[in-house]
Amino acid sequence: MSFFSYFQKKSEPTSAARAKERLQIIVAHERHRRKQPDFLPKMQQEIIDVIRKYINIDSDQVVVSLDESDHCSVLELNITLPE
């Protein structure tokens, strides 16, 4: 490493730091998904099918997630309706 490259390095994070950051995000996301009950994807599909009877939506416009905190679980259903 030359004398000047020492100064350049300071401005941007190292590639290893980027790797760690990306891994922390994806691993947290995947762990969260793993903890969700198996029925969730099927339930999501059925909800989509019901809504589709009345409104034309894409499947990615419905987000179902289950969050568990200390003493309660929250089932969140987020539907984006088309304009």
Binding site: S15, A16, K20, V27
Partner: peptide, 15 residues
């Protein structure tokens, strides 16, 4: 690892 090109032991342990 010292050059910041590879995840360190503690990085992997953290994750």
């Amino acid at each position: 690892v010292a050059n910041g090109e590879m995840l360190s032991v503690s990085d992997v342990e953290d994750i």
